[in-house]
Design a protein around this nucleic acid. Structure first.
Length: 425
RNA sequence: GGAGAGGUGGCCGAGUGGUUGAAGGCGCAGCACUGGAAAUGCUGUUUAGGGGUGACUCUAACGAGGGUUCGAAUCCCUCCCUCUCCGCCA
């Protein structure tokens, strides 16, 4: 959620920064805000008088004046009068506030000053590449689904029986590889200082609203209607929401978490895309990195987060590149975002495997996640960041494709040997 | 699923209609004491919104929403959540 005070103070400035992401109607928000404040002023003045009356009656009764005396009856009558007026103003104000909230919740975050301006993904900026010497140089490279099915470790067909299309069953070495990847990544991150958490993955609506998936992207998540709970689309949601409505002390920051969870996405609106393989499934595993930090350190924390995710790809010797997303391609809540894209030889291109975002105070304001500096008055909003470290299914795809051998076998990346206990899949 | 208890400030915890924004404690900050510290003593310390350049000021908030009343943390209703015991179950 963007800062309403900032919007009030500098509407042009906010408008200009938002325009780099699309068209948004700030005028009606400002108008509602002004109306609401007028009402609030009128209402609070009435309440002040009402409080006076209440106190005066109390004092008089205490002083021994009879409760039924005309003096008190007059005050009582005025009190009743005020109450009638208030009972009209209050619902109006509440309604305005609700409208205002609805509108402001649908506004995306302001891009950071350093985010390149651009219309869409074509204008993202490539920051660097790594590992081109590891790119397989052969003509007969197969896509990972062919490799996996031939080895009998990926079963898409029978998964349709069990669920739907866009689900997979991992068999034998496939399941073992998935587990190994999870374990390997978590161990790395824990070593780097992240505290592992295993959060609930059925989550409530407040949580989704705090991190920005609601109200705008309800159709992207699976919902258990009977219980008013949702399947987490990413561990970002439950992990960040561990701190919702809390006041942390400054010394508790920074908070670094890593988490393995399954993730569930409806992938509405991407029906034709990536229909085969592990790239776009309704259910997939992911190791996520989440940080809550002091605002002064969030930029560095972001760079470090990207590097922590990239380290995994380097350890697996998977070629990748780093993109900085332009304003037009930025996720809803992100102020700044780097994508890591891994090399997929069968497609001959890089595909997203991690998205590392700095949300600034956007999520913290929605989720009311604050911290207090010892000895200072008031509270401040934390900055939240997160990134995949990494998406397991896509990593598996990259491993199968980059490590495939001419005879159809797949070599196991060196760093996974201790986890898998075999050199060949 | 059945029975009961409860939701109060950063935390613990009092408080059943009128200076209760809320006792007390912890924590935190300042001061005193000390060579320095600990201990101790004193003082201060909620958040959010509005108005004002500012000192400051108004309002709201004791799980949420409604009701009674001139006045509600306190009484009534509805909902949500947590805990304990029993049952069932991975």
């Amino acid at each position: 959620m963007i800062d309403l005070k900032l919007l009030r103070k500098d509407p042009q400035g906010v408008q200009a920064r938002l325009r780099t992401r699309g068209d948004f109607d700030l005028g009606s928000i400002l108008a509602l805000d002004q109306q609401q404040r007028h009402l609030e002023e009128a209402r609070s003045q009435l309440q002040a008088r009402s409080n006076q009356i209440g106190k005066a009656i109390g004092d008089k009764i205490k002083a021994g004046i009879a409760p039924q005396s005309p003096e008190i009856e007059t005050l009582r009558a005025e009190g009743t009068q005020i109450k009638t007026t208030l009972s009209e103003l209050e619902p109006q104000e509440r309604e305005l506030k609700a409208q205002l909230e609805t509108l402001i919740l649908t506004l995306p975050n302001l891009p950071s000053d350093s985010t390149p301006v651009g219309k869409n993904e074509a204008e993202n900026v490539e920051v660097r590449r790594w590992g081109e010497e590891y790119i397989p140089q052969r003509a007969d490279l197969k896509p990972h689904w062919d490799i996996g099915e031939a080895l009998g470790i990926l079963d898409f067909k029978r998964s349709v029986n069990v669920a739907q299309s866009r689900f997979v069953t991992l068999v034998g070495a496939g399941a073992a590889l998935e587990r190994a990847l999870i374990q390997f990544m978590l161990n790395r991150h824990i070593q780097a200082g992240y505290v592992e958490v295993m959060p609930p993955i059925l989550i409530n609506s407040d949580s989704l609203q705090a991190t920005g998936q609601l109200p705008k992207f309800a159709e992207e998540s699976f919902k258990c209607d009977a219980d008013d709970l949702w399947l987490a689309p990413t561990a970002e949601v439950p992990v960040t929401n561990l701190y919702r409505d809390q006041v942390l002390s400054a010394e508790e920051l920074p908070i670094h978490h890593c988490a393995y969870t399954p993730c569930f996405r409806r992938e509405a609106g991407s029906y034709g895309r990536d229909t085969r393989g592990l790239i776009r499934l309704h259910q997939f595993n992911k190791v996520e990195l989440v940080k809550l930090v002091h605002p002064d350190t969030s930029a560095q924390a972001h760079e470090a987060l990207v590097q922590d995710a990239a380290t995994i790809l380097e350890a697996l010797k998977l070629p990748y590149r780093v993109l900085e997303l332009c304003t037009g391609d930025l996720g809803f809540g992100a102020a700044k975002c780097y994508d890591l894209e891994v090399w997929l030889p069968s497609a001959g291109c890089y595909r997203e495997i991690s998205s590392c975002s700095n949300f600034g105070d956007f999520q913290a304001r929605r989720g009311n996640i604050r911290f207090k500096e010892a000895g200072q008055k008031g509270t401040q909003l934390v900055h939240t960041l997160n990134g995949s470290g990494l998406a397991i299914g896509r990593t598996m795809a990259a491993v199968l494709e980059n490590y495939q051998q001419p005879n159809g076998q797949v070599r196991v990346p060196e760093v996974l040997l201790p986890y898998l206990g075999r050199e060949i899949l």
